[in-house]
Computed example of a mutant assay.
Amino acid sequence: ITPYWGQNNPIYIITFVFGLPLNILAFVTFLRKFKQKVISVDILLFNLTLSDLVLLAFLPFRIVEAASEMEWRMPYFICPFSLCVHFSSNYINSFLLTAISVERYLAVGFPLRYKRLVKPLYIIVGIVCIWILSTTHCSIFYIVDHFAPEKANKTNVSICYSQFSPVQLQVLLPIRLEVFFLLFCIPFMVTTFCSISFVHIMVTQPFISRKRKLRAIGLVTVTMINFILCFMPYNVSHVVGFIQGDNPPWRMHALLFSTFNATLDPIMFYFCSVSYQKMHLEDLLYIMNKTRLGAHRDNCLELFKKDHEEPHGLDVTEDYKDHGF
């Protein structure tokens, strides 16, 4: 086992092994939910799942690369394309997490205006813009990777997206800096403001139960971990690279953490929607009945009932309609 395998592949493998089944199960659960009722936050969470599944579909290429001592031994066109997909998924996720934070804040802070103005159609239009904005920006990285004629003619190279000519860096570094501010800093600042405001409203309201408050804190905690642990290190490398005029040697290692958000996102779904939790449990119980885990079915059901004795959860479309604010 090479040192590269030992350093890089555990994160990739953990993300793939846990993230893929969790996101597939979430995908199926949301499809079931849409047959019953469509609400704004579910559309956002469903697209977050889609983005994670796209990232996970291309993650095996990174696993093979790490197992090959970070040497690219596949056809070279797969390298920039897979990274373009990886980058696009990360920035789509950052915008979707921001949209979820804004949606939660508006729902608890301005419930009447939220109910009147926030419609599923508007959410869908915003999501389309997010996918287009993120994909077009990240496709620039793919184009720049073939900017220099001497590199564009290569069909296979030893290192993937780490060696650039001075001409390429002259174009690439300013673009990365712009991506840092537009696709990371703005979503991060908006998410921070909305998350703090959301928790403040939830915690300071005396008629909101402790369980709901804890779910609100859990939602914000997972969201901020996503930004700080998964997205921030790689985006900071854009600024460092611009200042140094070259790729930081730790840049590709920082990219490792950005894959882990595909595992964290399904955890966040539980804090966003109790109705999602219930349907998710039904899917799990169905799987357990079809496997040898069926003996534990009653225990899981009992634990869920004890944790959800209240009639409503953190679904603000249900909670704050009843409380009238």
Rank of each mutant, 00 (worst) to 15 (best):
R251W: 07
R210Q: 11
A262I: 02
L219P: 01
T259P: 00
I201H: 06
L256D: 14
N226W: 05
V199P: 12
G245T: 05
I201M: 07
K211Y: 02
V203G: 00
P206T: 13
P206N: 11
I243E: 00
H200W: 06
I243H: 03
N226H: 10
V199A: 09
S237A: 14
S258T: 14
I196P: 00
M232G: 02
I243F: 05
R210E: 03
V220N: 03
P206F: 07
R212M: 10
S209C: 06
F260E: 07
F231H: 14
L219H: 13
P233Q: 10
L229F: 14
W250D: 02
H253C: 03
F227S: 02
T223C: 09
P248W: 11
S237I: 09
R215Q: 11
M252A: 12
V199G: 08
M224C: 00
I201G: 02
D246M: 11
R251K: 07
F198D: 01
C230W: 04
M224Y: 12
F260T: 12
T204N: 15
Q244I: 14
T204D: 09
I217R: 13
Q244L: 15
L256T: 15
A262M: 08
R212I: 15
A254M: 15
L214K: 11
F260K: 08
W250R: 05
I243T: 14
P248K: 08
F260V: 05
T221N: 02
M202Y: 09
I217C: 12
G245L: 05
A262G: 09
N261F: 02
C230Y: 06
R210W: 02
N235S: 04
I225H: 03
R251G: 01
H200C: 06
V240K: 01
M202H: 04
G218R: 10
L255M: 11
T223A: 10
M252Y: 07
